[in-house]
Simulated assay, not measured.
Amino acid sequence: MRFIGLDPSTKTGFVALDEHGTVLKQKELTGVGSVDPLRMLTMIDEVMDFMKRDDFICIEGFGFASQQAIQLGGIGWGIRMALARRGHKWYEVAPMALKKFAGATGNKGPDGKAIKADKIEVAKQTLKRWDFESGSDNITDAFLLAKIAEGIWHYTEGATFTYPKFQEDVIYNILNPKPKAKKTKKRRGA
C-alpha cells in the first residue's frame, strides 16, 4: 500500500509514501519539451508510469484563479481520465483544505496580524510538522496530499492514529462533502 499525492500543474508534483509515512518517491514531472499537447500528453504518461494498482490517492482540486486556467484544467482532467481508465479511485482536496491541513491558515505573526496562507507559509508549516522540505511548491503540495491520503485511510479503516482537530476537520469534510447548492433561475419580469 502506498499513499499518493498528486498536484496537477504545468509542473506536476508526485509523492508516494509507504504505510509508515516514509517518502518513497518525490518528483516534479514536466513532460517532454515545451510545446503542447505533446508536453501535456507525456506528463500524464509520466504520472501513470509511477502509479501502482493499490495506490491510495489524493489529488488537488481545481483552483482557477490563474491565467493558465484552461491549460491547468486540461492537465488536471487528463490525469483524472488516465487514472479512471486504469480503475484508480481518488479523493479530491480543495486548495484551501490543503493549506488548512498543513496548518498554514489562521496563523498570526508577532504583530498579531494574520499571516497569509501562501506557498511560503505552507512550506514553513510542512517543515515544522513533518520535517519535510522541497525546493518545489508542487512537491510540497503533493507531500501534503499524500499525508491527507494517509489520514483518510486511517480514518476509514478505523486505525488508531491521532490528528489535530483542524486536520480531522479536513479529512471529515473530504469524506462528507456538502451537497452543492442548486442554482435558481431568475424569472422574467420579476
Rank of each mutant, 00 (worst) to 15 (best):
T105A: 09
A82P: 08
M40Q: 07
T12I: 00
K108R: 15
M81G: 05
L72Y: 05
L6F: 11
K89T: 15
P95Q: 09
F3T: 12
V15Y: 02
I44H: 07
R53T: 13
F50I: 07
F62Q: 06
H20A: 09
P37I: 04
G61Q: 12
V32R: 00
F62V: 05
T30H: 11
L6K: 14
P95L: 09
E46W: 04
G73E: 02
R53Y: 03
L17R: 13
I57L: 01
G76L: 02
M51Q: 02
R85G: 00
Q71L: 13
V35N: 11
M51V: 03
K89R: 14
T10W: 05
K108M: 08
L17H: 13
K27Q: 13
L6Y: 12
R39A: 14
G103V: 04
H20C: 03
T105Y: 07
I57C: 01
R80D: 07
I70A: 13
I70F: 10
D55F: 01
L83I: 06
T10D: 08
M48H: 04
R80N: 05
M96D: 04
P95G: 11
G87P: 08
L98C: 03
F101C: 03
Y91C: 11
T12Q: 00
A69P: 09
S34G: 12
F56Y: 14
V47Q: 06
G61S: 15
P95Y: 09
G103C: 04
K52N: 15
E92T: 10
V47D: 02
M40R: 06
G76Q: 05
G5E: 10
V23W: 02
R53C: 06
N107S: 00
F14Y: 14
L72N: 06
V47K: 03
D54Y: 07
G74A: 10
Y91H: 15
W90H: 11
K25Q: 05
L24A: 01
L41Y: 06
G73H: 02
M51R: 05
L17D: 09
T105K: 08
E60V: 14
E60A: 14
I4R: 04
P8M: 09
Q71W: 03
M48K: 07
K25F: 00
D45S: 11
I59Y: 06
A97S: 15
F64C: 10
V47C: 09
D7Q: 13
F101A: 01
K100D: 14
Q67P: 09
Q68V: 01
G76V: 00
V35P: 00
G76P: 02
G21P: 01
E92M: 11
R86K: 12
M43G: 00
M1V: 14
T10I: 10
F3E: 11
A94W: 09
A104H: 03
G78Q: 04
M40E: 09
D54C: 02
L29R: 10
I79E: 05
L6I: 15
L17V: 10
A84I: 01
Y91G: 10
G63F: 13
G5D: 08
T105D: 10
I79Y: 05
R86M: 08
L41N: 11
F64R: 13
Q71I: 09
S9R: 11
S9Q: 13
G103H: 01
